[in-house]
């Protein structure tokens, strides 16, 4: 197990290095950030001054080496726009994004799993067909449009939930969360639902196909022959088998929930990392962009590792083959 984790961490280092190179040259190509920093009526001398201050006058490989040196020391520089540490800016916004992604993940499981189980156990039932049709909509409707429609319906027409922003934040055990108050939940529900929509559909389809497959297996028939109740057969025998692919996919999808919360955050004015990233890209704030990408890459790598470990906890066969290897 330890060798496995070490091997995974080595792979992660390569991914991080590749990302650093890509993002640095990517943002270098996009444009010259100096023009975003100086006032419109600045003189050539003033522009040159700014350029020297930030080191933009040096050749690109020298800039890259400087940048690399910073990264190795765990620094991504100061944001050009905010003037403070880029990584600190990102980390300050991270709890909001994580909270949103986490809430979306919970919604995906809480809504998707029961619907998928039902659709898998009674595939001919009209409600099951309706669920499947709904999941196709969930897949194909664009997130930003659904977000707008949610605001239209629940905030504008019905007036039940606030359209934008985050509720009051409380800090417990060093974690900032708005999930502890009713008002916090009222603010969280719409963006979380919007972000979760695609994942709900995914969980429904995964659960349904897994259930239909498992229900035909001999071990389910044998469980029935033992005289077990239907709830025990579905809740233990079938569910534990179909959870394996669902946990894998959801784990991987959690990373994408964080990364793609950009759209949802901008629609609902959710003060998370995604919104910060959009602003940074518009202003060519390279340290901020790089810091964001690094955080997301590390997040993905960590999540993948956790998924692998969870997977072996769920499927005993994985554990055995790992110890034999």
């Amino acid at each position: 197990m330890l060798a496995f984790i070490l091997r995974r961490l080595m792979q992660a280092v390569f991914v991080v290095v590749a990302m650093v190179v890509l993002v640095f040259f990517g943002t270098y190509v996009i444009g010259d950030p100096v023009w975003m920093m100086v006032p419109g009526d600045a003189t050539i001398e003033q522009v040159g001054e700014v350029r020297r201050t930030f080191g933009f006058d040096q050749p690109v490989y020298v800039q890259f080496l400087h940048f690399l040196g910073d990264v190795v020391r765990g620094e991504f520089g100061r944001s050009y726009v905010h003037g403070t540490s880029a990584i600190a800016l990102i980390l300050a916004r991270m709890p909001a994004t994580m909270e949103l992604a986490f809430a979306a993940l919970i919604l995906a499981v809480v809504i998707g799993l029961p619907l998928g189980l039902f659709a898998g156990l009674k595939p001919e039932h009209p409600a099951a067909r309706a669920i499947m049709a709904g999941s196709i909509l969930g897949f194909s409707l664009p997130t930003f449009w659904v977000g707008l429609m949610l605001i239209m319906l629940f905030s504008v027409m019905l007036g039940w939930l606030p359209a934008t922003g985050r509720g009051p934040v409380v800090s417990i055990f060093g974690l900032e969360t708005s999930m502890l108050s009713l008002d916090g939940w009222r603010h969280l529900l719409l963006p979380a639902l919007n972000l979760a929509l695609l994942k709900i559909s995914l969980v429904i389809r995964l659960t349904r196909s897994g259930t239909r497959e498992a229900a035909l297996q001999d071990y389910v028939k044998f469980a029935r022959a033992k005289g077990l109740s239907q709830s025990r057969i579905v809740g233990v025998h079938i569910l534990k088998n179909i959870l394996i692919p669902i946990v894998t996919v959801l784990g991987l999808e959690f990373g994408s929930l964080v990364a793609f919360s950009v759209v949802t955050e901008s629609i609902f004015a959710w003060p998370g990392m995604g919104k910060l990233l959009l602003e940074a890209i518009q202003r060519l704030d390279r340290p901020l962009i790089v810091a964001y990408v690094m955080v997301v890459v590390l997040l993905f790598v960590t999540i993948n590792l956790i998924v692998d470990i969870l997977y072996s906890a769920l499927d005993p066969r994985v554990r055995l083959s790992e110890s034999e290897a």
């Binding site: 001999d218 044998f222 233990v236 394996i244 769920l314 005993p316 066969r317």
Partner: peptide, 10 residues
């Protein structure tokens, strides 16, 4: 088929 009658994950 004894390979199929026992639940593999329990």
């Amino acid at each position: 088929d004894p390979m199929m009658t026992l639940n593999p994950v329990l």
